[in-house]
């Protein structure tokens, strides 16, 4: 009893070690690998690179249009902020209307003095309510964002300035290319649990949701018409996912990322179908300010955004105009 055969003892220890290693490798392959990418948190928030659209920078992709409104160095400049997907819009606004030198970008971020900021939707709304930002370019606010504004005594003024496609995405190897609105809602209410119910393979559906308060999550809640959404499925990571975002954001991801957008109600979310209104899930985006912000230049800029010049800029950046 005091001694056991050495080979038996070693075999048992190796077996236990092998079980742990197999288990950990399975977790890594099935889950960890998918949750980790090689971008930093900040880079992920800005899949559309800040540098790529930096106003006034050499080789910038920010669009510049002929503008009858042109602020000078002596003007009090409205501070702009907004959703990451709309950063190209407000960067282009600054490039077209603001004086050079008003946008200060250092060490990968905008300085506090810069007239252009980047907080994304989650924080841009509170920044407007708090008075730190004059105009935020965002999708519609969530209930929480409206409630926060009310709690600090701010009323949000939402000026629709353009339209964008809300899209559903799956892995490009998923044979399903399109779904109806009813099927998409059914996935997120839990009615459909397997892709085989929707013309796909016999594989569990793994519906992914976004952070509460993000622009896409707020639009999704509207799309669901008040129906409660499931927020994941036990062992869903073994199935095949579906998620949602804005078209511009998905278009901006590197081509080697193997995701594809789904047609909805038989219409693919191409830029053309969004502009001509045939794609059914088109959402407005807004220039948002405090309703009591009576700064003259804020009002001039809001008016300009709805002018032919401003709407031309929206279209030139890649979104659909509102007027």
């Amino acid at each position: 009893m005091d001694r056991m055969k050495k080979s038996t003892a070693i075999a048992m220890i190796v077996l236990i070690a092998a079980i742990f290693i197999s288990f950990d490798v399975s977790i890594y392959v099935l889950f960890t690998r998918r949750a980790v990418d090689d971008m930093t948190v900040e880079e992920r928030k800005a899949a559309i690179s800040l540098e790529d659209y930096l106003p006034f920078a050499e080789g910038t992709r920010a669009v510049t249009v002929e503008s009858s409104l042109r602020f000078s160095d002596v003007d009090k400049l409205p501070v702009l902020d907004g959703a990451s997907a709309l950063y190209p819009v407000y960067a282009s606004v600054a490039a077209s209307v603001y004086p050079e030198g008003s946008v200060i970008f250092e060490d990968g971020a905008f300085s506090e003095e810069s007239a252009v900021q980047f907080r994304n939707t989650l924080r841009a709304y509170s920044a407007v309510a708090d008075g730190d930002v004059d105009i935020a370019f965002c999708a519609a606010p969530s209930k929480e964002q409206r409630a926060y504004a009310a709690s600090v005594g701010a009323e949000l003024e939402l000026l629709p300035i353009g339209r964008e496609g809300f899209v559903f995405i799956v892995n490009e190897n998923n044979p399903v290319n399109g779904l109806t609105s009813e099927q998409l809602r059914g996935i997120y209410t839990g009615k459909y649990k397997n892709w085989s119910e929707l013309g796909g393979p016999d594989r569990m559906i793994d519906p992914k949701t976004r952070l509460a308060g993000s622009g896409s999550q707020t639009v999704m809640e509207h799309f669901m018409n008040g129906e409660p959404m499931i927020t994941g499925r036990m062992f869903g990571f073994l199935g095949a996912s579906v998620g949602y975002s804005f078209r511009f954001y998905v278009e901006a991801v590197p081509r080697e990322m193997s995701v594809k957008m789904l047609a909805v109600d038989g219409v693919f979310p191409s830029a053309g179908n969004i502009k001509n209104g045939t794609y059914p899930l088109v959402t407005e985006f807004y220039a948002v300010c405090r309703s009591d912000n009576d700064d003259e230049n804020v009002r001039r800029l809001l008016d300009w955004l709805l002018s032919d010049e401003g709407q031309g800029l929206i279209e030139a950046v890649g979104y659909a105009r509102i007027k």
Binding site: V29, L30, F31, T32, R33, R34, A35, V36, D37, M39, V41, R44, A47, I169, V170, N171, N173, N174, K208, R210, A240, S241, V242, G243, S245, V250, V253, M257, S258, V259
Partner: peptide, 16 residues
């Protein structure tokens, strides 16, 4: 990582 992960990366790296 899952809390902060990109939904696009998550879907793109799915095993098929």
């Amino acid at each position: 990582e899952y809390k902060n992960c990109s939904i696009i990366t998550y879907i793109a790296t799915e095993l098929w």
